[in-house]
Structures are given as structure tokens and as C-alpha cells.
Amino acid sequence: MGIGGISIWQLLIILVIVVLLFGTKRLKSLGSDLGGAVKGFKNSMQDDEEEKKNLENSEETTAKSEQAQEEIKK
């Protein structure tokens, strides 16, 4: 018995039916499209994290600059 009560033979039969219905070329392009979408999602998540860090660094720099200006005024 395999995953969740589905045997390996049932999975192979489903795979054969899918290949027969859609063809290997269509499945290959679907797989590459899906891979590209996942890669784009990961890149956008990394970009968001970098942007957040840059914003935090900018806020820290602004606060330090304001403190230095106050000390100069004293």
C-alpha cells in the first residue's frame, strides 16, 4: 500500500492516462511553465525581503542622522 491508500500501480496507471491524454510535449511545456512560475515566485519573495531590509537600514540611518544633528545643536 502506498501513499494514502493508493498503490504504486494505481499511480502508474494514472500517469499513463495523463500522458495519453495530453501528450509528452504538452506535459513538458506545462512542467517548464510551472517551474518558471515557481522560480519567479521565489525571486519576488527574495526581492521583498531585500527591500524590507533596505527600508529598515534607511530608517536607522535617518534616526542616527537626526540624533547627530540634535547633538550638534546642543
Rank of each mutant, 00 (worst) to 15 (best):
F22H: 07
F22S: 13
F22Y: 15
F22N: 14
F22L: 14
F22W: 10
F22M: 07
F22C: 09
F22R: 09
G23K: 00
G23A: 02
G23D: 01
G23S: 00
T24Y: 13
T24S: 11
T24F: 08
T24V: 07
T24M: 08
T24H: 06
K25N: 05
K25I: 00
K25F: 01
K25M: 00
K25E: 03
K25D: 02
R26G: 05
R26L: 08
R26T: 01
R26Y: 04
R26W: 10
R26N: 10
R26Q: 10
R26F: 06
R26D: 04
L27G: 02
L27N: 03
L27S: 03
L27V: 06
K28D: 12
K28L: 14
K28R: 15
K28M: 13
K28A: 04
K28C: 07
K28N: 15
K28H: 15
S29N: 06
S29M: 02
S29Y: 00
S29H: 03
S29I: 08
L30H: 10
L30W: 08
L30G: 15
L30F: 14
G31Y: 06
G31Q: 07
G31E: 07
G31N: 07
G31F: 09
S32F: 12
S32M: 13
S32V: 07
S32E: 09
S32Y: 15
S32N: 14
D33C: 14
D33L: 07
D33P: 01
D33I: 03
D33T: 02
L34G: 13
L34S: 08
L34P: 07
L34H: 13
L34A: 14
L34E: 06
G35H: 03
G35Y: 13
G35L: 03
G36V: 00
G36T: 01
G36K: 02
G36E: 06
G36M: 00
G36D: 09
G36Q: 02
G36W: 03
A37K: 11
A37S: 12
A37I: 01
A37R: 02
A37M: 06
V38K: 15
V38P: 13
V38A: 12
K39G: 01
K39W: 09
G40K: 01
G40E: 02
G40Q: 02
G40C: 01
G40T: 02
G40R: 08
G40I: 01
F41M: 10
K42W: 06
K42G: 00
K42V: 03
K42M: 05
K42D: 00
K42N: 03
N43V: 07
N43K: 13
N43D: 05
N43P: 01
N43S: 11
S44C: 05
S44A: 13
S44K: 09
S44Y: 04
M45I: 09
M45N: 05
M45H: 08
M45A: 09
M45Y: 05
M45L: 09
Q46H: 13
Q46D: 11
Q46L: 11
Q46T: 08
D47N: 05
D47I: 01
D47S: 14
D47T: 08
D47F: 07
D48Y: 10
D48G: 11
D48C: 08
D48I: 12
D48L: 15
D48T: 15
E49R: 13
E49V: 12
E49C: 05
E49N: 15
E49M: 15
E50A: 03
E50S: 03
E50M: 02
E50P: 00
E51P: 10
E51H: 13
E51Y: 11
E51K: 10
E51D: 13
E51S: 11
